[in-house]
Nucleic acid binder design. Sequence first.
DNA 1: GATGAATGAGTTTTCATTCAT
DNA 2: AATGAATGAAAACTCATTCAT
Lengths: 213, 213, 213, 213
Amino acid sequence: MADESLDGRTLRATRKRQHRRQAILTGALKVFGEKGYHGAHISDIIDEVGIARGTFYLYFESKNAIFLELLDGLLAELRRHIVGVSTAEGAPPVVAQLAGTVREVLRTMVQNRMLSTIIIREAVGLDAEVDSRLRAFYAELLHYIRDAVAEGQRLSLIRELDTEVAAMCILGTIKQFVEQLVMMDVQEVDVDRMALSVLDFNLRGLLRRDAES
Amino acid sequence: MADESLDGRTLRATRKRQHRRQAILTGALKVFGEKGYHGAHISDIIDEVGIARGTFYLYFESKNAIFLELLDGLLAELRRHIVGVSTAEGAPPVVAQLAGTVREVLRTMVQNRMLSTIIIREAVGLDAEVDSRLRAFYAELLHYIRDAVAEGQRLSLIRELDTEVAAMCILGTIKQFVEQLVMMDVQEVDVDRMALSVLDFNLRGLLRRDAES
Amino acid sequence: MADESLDGRTLRATRKRQHRRQAILTGALKVFGEKGYHGAHISDIIDEVGIARGTFYLYFESKNAIFLELLDGLLAELRRHIVGVSTAEGAPPVVAQLAGTVREVLRTMVQNRMLSTIIIREAVGLDAEVDSRLRAFYAELLHYIRDAVAEGQRLSLIRELDTEVAAMCILGTIKQFVEQLVMMDVQEVDVDRMALSVLDFNLRGLLRRDAES
Amino acid sequence: MADESLDGRTLRATRKRQHRRQAILTGALKVFGEKGYHGAHISDIIDEVGIARGTFYLYFESKNAIFLELLDGLLAELRRHIVGVSTAEGAPPVVAQLAGTVREVLRTMVQNRMLSTIIIREAVGLDAEVDSRLRAFYAELLHYIRDAVAEGQRLSLIRELDTEVAAMCILGTIKQFVEQLVMMDVQEVDVDRMALSVLDFNLRGLLRRDAES
DNA sequence: GATGAATGAGTTTTCATTCAT
DNA sequence: AATGAATGAAAACTCATTCAT
């Protein structure tokens, strides 16, 4: 009996702990999103969550640490959606795969509107650690895009061009869309349509097909 | 004699004042570029310029004020290069005009590498004032691009597409290039070639011409 | 049965309580000895003992209270070894009694190495209470030594000298030895030999016997 | 003219700076002496001196830094009085030289009553830096005393004994006297007489000359 | 005008103690 | 009794801005 009740208690305590930890993360996310990293003070976070000063430090080591954790969370989620383009038989067309990735990245960032703002706008230069993680993430992203483009070339879907330049352009268009989406306080955005628009632009460019001739 | 010498003195004093003011702006630009807005302290600026602490406040009202002035300077210079697309007779082709603008924007930002970093990365969220100026600038830029695209459509150079989306994509590609250029510590970059690459990407997209058929 | 078992339970509970109280005292002693009063945190003590934070406060009122209790314990033990010099018939020679006391004091402090460190180095100035107890203890000690010296003079064993000064010197030599012993991490020290050395120095001084003539 | 007046101004400014620096040191000394290292807060020091919080940090890097400076000052002054025993012809007798050193050490510490308190009681264990300087100082002191004792033995002034033990005993007696002097709030103490008493005790010990035979 | 010493509000972080479970 | 999460007062330190000289 004792054991069971102890287990129950411990379990409940652990859950409560996790719950509060999550509450602090959520509050911090809101505050960071509203005020930016430098404008957000520990005081703002604890006021938002409704906890005492010391309680914050019971769950996180510092302002920087909680920010890093939020950042890591978002980057991890983004990475989950960035899966290499597959050319296996039966796999969807490369372009469709790309469209899927673009759509998921946009969707994730719109859902994490507040943190995305910071990632895109403010995070660079905050901190050596933050910097290096962001750099690494963007490098991965560029690498992924470059590979996809190269694969498209191998399949003769994509024309001859500098894959490096193309990757940068694509990344730029995505970032700009996220920034726009995040700045607009629109709750419901048709992310799918947007992803298709971005992709369409990147695939076909501005010119009329016959304008080049 | 007295009058003349006074005039002379006043003149010289005014010139000296202007000169020093400029020196402080230059020093601040360097420091902001190296350390970012929050990392840059008044101490860093006065050390860089070689003036006393109080002197800084004789020329600028606050840290924020000098930053705003630098920002305004860059935005003004950028605006000078963003001239509406002309369809007057004898004007260069629209595409060439666009290429020119892209080239000048890139060139200006690379030349003002340090401040550009801040505009792209850090300035948003600093301050209501800074924010609104940046928003206004980007809005103008988008507007300019949108108009140019629309003009291209009117001339049947540009295919049917959402000019809003196209403008955002183009802005995104440019920003990404600037960020890349600014991050790389390359002194000499072939901005012209880059502008052409960006333009080429934006004009033609990724796909092979015959891949669509 | 109920009564008996209740008594038994009460008894067992009381014993357990005493046992745990002692465990906390021991853990605190170790921590205080290693880190000093200010460097020792309640967290260190409860980690050392393996109890919860709140449990500590079930047994002791405060950090200061447990420190005071440890201090009192050591002082009481030291006092037990400081018995007045006896001149009763059949009593050992005064010098031998002195030697015994010095030996016991050194031995006790070396055995309580950790607490002794604090008494000698850090305890003064911590707290009015701690201060007054230490002052009282040292005053007693000085008094004891002074009396012993005076007794030695009455018995014509000890030369004419200021007993106050002599007592202070003797106390000083003992404290210095304890400090040295405690600083050296030697586990086994020949306390007896040391006590004899100290005593020899104090009795005979530096000079050659014939150097005075 | 300008140069001269500038020099004058600079000179005056420098003097004022030195003066204020000294005032802070003095205030800190008083506060440290009254409350001990841990009990002394920056707030106490700035209240004592009558300056703003930031001003303190204009002159000293941290609480630890100012304490270290005070400590170094006292140790330096003490070292000035600890000059090796000279056996050159015409030099004063070794014992007289020793007496001089003891007298000067006592005098210096009594004059720097407040800091001496901390050195003797509290300083060990404060900080790695403080610790190592104190250790070094005491090691020097022991070395000096040991050498003096050995020299006395070479000159047949001092009897056969363990110079290490003797040095520790002598150091102990001196420390005890300083502690006593510092604790007593007596303003005027006959340091000379005390130094002679200490020395007499250390030289001749307790026993009557004829008691040993 | 120039100087730089002085200011003090504001920020992060620590840790002994309390209290609901 | 035991637990350990929560508390919040208190402390060190920063830095944009002011002001007497």
